[in-house]
């Protein structure tokens, strides 16, 4: 089972995720229309580029925008969740060794204690994100089962990873579950709301271009939209 999960299944999951992301990313930009969106994308590449980069960059920084600053609770929960959710899969020592073996590439690795802290932060933040969905009327009204499902498949690899890490019960069972959940997550990315992991950049770039070209960027406004 373990061999299958780390072999064929891994390649399928990675392939589906990467190809799916690339295809959807290209489709997104092919679907932009200067006429329908009313943005002269190609006429002002410099203003568009500046707007897009500023829009992405500022929103990636905790408290980097007015929007983040006005809502500190969600901002902390949001970044607590996302920083770990991006860093742990790529930079945890175990993941690094696995990626080195499979793909021949490895990035820097996280210190083990720091990795533990990050992982727990992801889980705790996810708890607060769920709580927020249940408690705040303005979030509850829009929350569907699908939103909980997305949160569940996002958090499952972290929870199973922790269970394996602390060897709760059968280590190899939790390890296999962890790998399975991780692969499920990879496959889900291009087909679900999780597509935001790459479409975030597309959508932010679009709005950045919109404001950068048409709605004030060329009049000297330096706002992060």
């Amino acid at each position: 089972m373990h061999d299958l999960l780390t072999g064929l299944f891994f390649w399928i999951a990675l392939g589906v995720c990467l190809i799916g992301m690339i295809v959807r990313f290209i489709m997104y930009f092919k679907g932009l229309s200067w006429r329908l969106d009313r943005v002269a994308y190609t006429s002002y590449p410099a203003a568009g580029f500046k707007g897009a980069v500023r829009s992405i960059y500022k929103w990636l920084i905790p408290f980097g925008t007015y929007g983040w600053r006005t809502q500190p609770f969600i901002t902390v929960a949001f970044f607590g969740f996302h920083i770990g959710a991006v860093m742990i899969p790529l930079f945890l020592l175990g993941h690094s060794l696995f990626l080195k073996e499979k793909l021949g590439i490895s990035f820097f690795t996280l210190n083990a204690t720091f990795a533990d802290i990050l992982t727990w932060t992801v889980v705790v933040s996810a708890f607060f994100l769920v709580l927020r969905r249940m408690v705040l009327p303005e979030v509850r009204i829009m929350t569907t089962l699908y939103d909980y499902f997305i949160l569940l498949i996002s958090i499952a690899p972290f929870i199973t990873g922790l269970l394996a890490r602390y060897q709760v019960g059968d280590y190899s069972f939790w390890l296999n579950m962890h790998i399975f959940c991780g692969e499920l997550l990879l496959i889900a990315i291009p087909f679900t709301k999780l597509s935001h992991v790459f479409l975030f950049f597309a959508s932010r770039a679009q709005l950045g271009m919109d404001f950068g070209i048409k709605r004030g960027g060329m009049k000297g406004t330096k706002m992060a939209w």
């Binding site: 929007g67 969600i74 705040l136 829009m142 569907t144 939103d147 597509s195 479409l199």
Partner: peptide
């Protein structure tokens, strides 16, 4: 599609 229903 990507609206996270976060209510921000």
């Amino acid at each position: 599609e990507i609206c996270a229903h976060c209510g921000m």
